[in-house]
Simulated scan of single mutants.
Amino acid sequence: MIPALFRVDRRIDEFAGTFTLYLSSEQSREPPLFRPGQFNMLYAFGAGEVPISMSGSPAEHNGYVHTIRAHGLVTQALARLRDGDTIGVRGPFGHGWPLEKAEGKNLLIIAGGLGLAPLRPVLCSLLQGQPAVKQATLFYGARRPQEVLFRDSMRDWRERIALVLSVDDADTQWDGRVGVITEPLRSAEIDGENSIVFLCGPEVMMRFCVRLLLDKGVPESSIYLSMERNMKCATGHCGHCQWGPSFICKDGPVFNYGSVSRWMNIRAL
């Protein structure tokens, strides 16, 4: 429960209001390893702490990478950090993406907006050959072209992963796909019985994607989604993130859709 001290080695501004921090431990030993999909509690001195998913490669053992949107007191304090500053870190916490279940299957990675950040460690693992999937496809939707995350990384991803990129709104300088990401997903040919899905984004987007996937024959048990809301303590004690019988921080943030379908209520869409 006591934060460890980490140093900001590098800060990258992704776009206005969203940034990535590269952190290294100020202790002599390496920080704990993490699984893609897990999160840390980041403590900004004088402001408080906030849960933020890992967005770096799990193969890098000397620190953590977090991509953050400044939208509250704590994240705005984190946004003021610069290279060399110190923050507190607790974690890693939670259950991550079940990479082992994607072995030998078609892996569909579906992300909306900042939801690409918790899925970036999965993409990093794929580039290193883990897991050995039959085929991997990334469906990624952003609000505007200037809000597309990890542009440099996408050049590497395209060599190994089929990438479908779409933006909701664009000007004449954008020559890519325009529209919500559910549109290319609806027209995609998906082998439901031999596919597994990792999904993260705004909740309404995830609900529409789940309904499309079910209509295409993907079983509920093959759909995994990350739910990140109301997490405060990260250990299941405060009760803020209770969702049905589960606590998102302790039992998630990655859930199998089949186990939480009654709480998402996609039939109401």
Score class of each variant (00 low, 15 high):
Lys105Ile: 00
Gln76Cys: 12
Asp171Leu: 10
Ser53Gly: 10
Phe139Cys: 08
His61Gln: 14
Arg69Glu: 13
Phe139Gly: 11
Leu81Asp: 01
Leu165Cys: 06
Val122Glu: 09
Gly56Ala: 11
Gln38Met: 02
Ser28Met: 02
Ile161Asn: 12
Met41Leu: 15
Ala102Asp: 08
Ser28Cys: 00
Arg120Glu: 03
Cys124Ala: 11
Ile109Cys: 11
Gly141Gln: 10
Asn62Tyr: 10
Asp168Phe: 09
Phe93Gly: 05
Pro145Ala: 11
Asp85His: 09
Pro32Arg: 06
Gln27Gly: 11
Thr75Ser: 14
Pro58Leu: 04
Leu114Asp: 02
Leu116Arg: 05
Ile87Pro: 06
Ile68Pro: 01
Gly37Val: 02
Glu60Trp: 10
Glu159Pro: 00
Arg158Glu: 15
Glu60Phe: 08
Gly63Cys: 11
Arg155Glu: 14
Leu138Phe: 07
Arg80Ile: 00
Asn40His: 06
Asp171His: 11
Val89Leu: 15
Met154Ile: 09
Asp171Ala: 07
Arg35Tyr: 01
Arg158Leu: 07
Phe45Lys: 14
Gly141Phe: 07
Leu165Lys: 04
Lys134Asn: 14
Val65Ser: 11
Ser53Ala: 15
Arg155Gln: 14
Pro92Thr: 09
Gly96His: 12
Met154Asp: 06
Asp152Gln: 14
Met41Ile: 12
Asp169Gly: 00
Ile87Tyr: 05
Pro31Asn: 06
Val122Thr: 13
Ala162Cys: 03
Thr75Leu: 03
Asp171Val: 07
Ala44Gln: 06
Val133Lys: 07
Ser125Thr: 08
Ala142Met: 03
Lys105Cys: 04
Asp171Cys: 08
Phe139Lys: 10
Leu81Phe: 13
Pro118Val: 03
Arg35His: 12
Gln76Trp: 01
Gly46Asn: 10
Trp97Phe: 15
Leu81Cys: 07
Gly129Cys: 04
Met154Thr: 01
Asp169Val: 12
Gly88Ala: 02
Gly37Met: 01
Leu123Pro: 06
Ser28Arg: 11
Pro31Gln: 08
Cys124Trp: 13
Glu103Lys: 12
Met54Gln: 15
Arg82Phe: 00
His61Arg: 15
Gly88Arg: 01
Ala70Glu: 12
Phe39Ser: 04
Ile52Cys: 06
Met54Phe: 13
Val133Glu: 05
Arg90Asp: 04
Arg120Lys: 15
Arg151Ile: 11
Arg144Trp: 01
Ala162His: 13
Glu100Cys: 01
Trp97Leu: 05
Gly91Glu: 08
Ala47Val: 01
Val148Ser: 05
Glu159Ile: 00
Ala162Trp: 00
Met54Ile: 08
Val164Leu: 10
Leu33Trp: 00
Leu107Gln: 04
Leu127Glu: 15
Thr172Ala: 15
Arg158Lys: 15
Ala47His: 13
Ser125Ile: 01
Leu126Trp: 06
Asp85Ala: 10
Ala102Gln: 04
Arg158Cys: 05
Arg160Lys: 15
Ala170Met: 11
Gln135Cys: 02
Gly56Asn: 10
Phe139Trp: 06
Leu126Ile: 07
Asn40Cys: 12
Lys101Thr: 13
Gln135Glu: 14
Gly88Cys: 03
Arg29Lys: 13
Thr67Phe: 06
Ala117Arg: 08
His95Ser: 12
